[in-house]
């Protein structure tokens, strides 16, 4: 088991390297280098840029040097000093801006993951066991609709309904008076009060997908001989389901964490913009529109890294739950 974890962790490193390269390429994509944007930005704010500052900035980011040198400066700054560069727009270090927002993105994604599981698991089992029942058809239909509505659209419609019929604005993660308050029990409650909307918005598509996966997997398993064999030993339907086919069908379910994370983070980005949540989404799009590239790259890289680590965790979890995987990796 230990060997398997080490192996998987080592395999993650090249992926992270490629992610950092892709993120760096994105910084480089817009025409002109970002010093021009810095200068333009500073001049917008009425400051004059003296050549000494310019030279200092140039030296710091290795501008004008070959691309691989620039990349190395950027990446080594992150790894060695936690220095993600500077946001030109906010004129602050990127590191100051991203952590709290990444944290909240993680909270939302994780809560959504739990939500989708709790909802999808029983419904998936039900629809497979009661195949072709009315409940099955209803769940399937709702599932299809859940898959067909893009996250932002669902968010918009929910906001419209809340605004129109309950006359309340549902954006944000905190009430106005709580935003700057220090963390307290009341603030957590306030967060939970606001959290459910993005969680529902984000979780609907995922839940629908998971229900379909669970249903299909379980239907496959129910056909297998071991189910009939267990039934032939006199087990009750409930015990039988729980201990045999559901346990098997659960494995692909767990592995879905891996691929649902990228989707969740993607969805969280868009939804956050619509619902103006204090997560990565709104700041990322602002940064992209303003070509505040260090900030944008930091977000893209950290979001990607987050999902890669999440996938790793789900793989390890899967190996713990499914003895067959450990077996296959023993050699």
């Amino acid at each position: 088991m230990g060997r398997y974890i080490i192996k998987r962790t080592l395999m993650m490193i090249p992926t992270l390297v490629v992610i950092s390269i892709v993120s760096f390429v994105i910084i480089q994509l817009p025409p002109g280098d970002f010093l021009t944007s810095v200068v333009a930005n500073l001049e917008d704010q009425g400051q004059t840029v003296d050549s000494a500052t310019l030279a200092a900035l140039q030296a710091r980011y290795g501008l004008g040097r070959p691309v691989h040198v620039q990349y190395w400066r950027w990446v080594s700054g992150i790894i060695l000093r936690g220095d993600f560069g500077r946001s030109f727009r906010y004129n602050r270090p990127v590191a100051d801006l991203i952590w709290s927002r990444l944290g909240l993105t993680f909270v939302i994604s994780f809560t959504t993951l739990i939500f989708t599981w709790v909802v999808a698991l029983p419904i998936g089992v039900y629809t497979a066991v009661k195949q072709r029942s009315v409940g099955d058809y209803i769940a399937t239909f709702i599932g299809f609709i859940g898959l067909a509505i893009p996250n932002f659209l669902l968010a918009l419609v929910l906001m419209y309904i809340a605004f129109r019929y309950f006359n309340q604005s549902v954006g944000g993660l905190f009430s106005p008076d709580m935003i700057d308050a220090p963390w307290s029990f009341a603030k957590v409650v306030d967060l939970l009060n606001h959290l459910w909307i993005p969680v529902v918005v984000l979780g609907t598509a995922g839940t629908a997908g998971l229900i379909r996966i669970m249903r299909a997997n379980l239907l496959d398993e129910l056909k297998k001989t071991y189910v009939m064999a267990a039934r032939a030993r006199g087990l009750s339907e409930w015990t039988l389901l729980r201990q045999y086919p559901v346990r098997v069908a659960l494995n692909p379910f767990i592995s879905t964490i891996g691929w649902s994370l990228p989707t969740l983070v993607s969805g969280a980005t868009v939804t956050a913009i619509v619902l103006s949540l204090p997560t990565t989404g709104p700041l990322l799009i602002e940064a992209l529109k303003a070509q505040d590239m260090f900030l944008a790259a930091a977000f893209i890289m950290m979001l990607s890294a987050l999902t890669v680590i999440g996938t790793l965790v789900s793989d390890i979890l899967l190996a713990i739950v499914d003895p067959r995987i450990k077996y296959a990796n023993r050699g």
Partner: peptide, 15 residues
């Protein structure tokens, strides 16, 4: 009690 044709699939795979 009953035993089946496919011994490969008549035991619970994760039990």
């Amino acid at each position: 009690s009953m035993i089946f044709q496919e011994p490969m699939s008549s035991l619970g795979p994760v039990n």
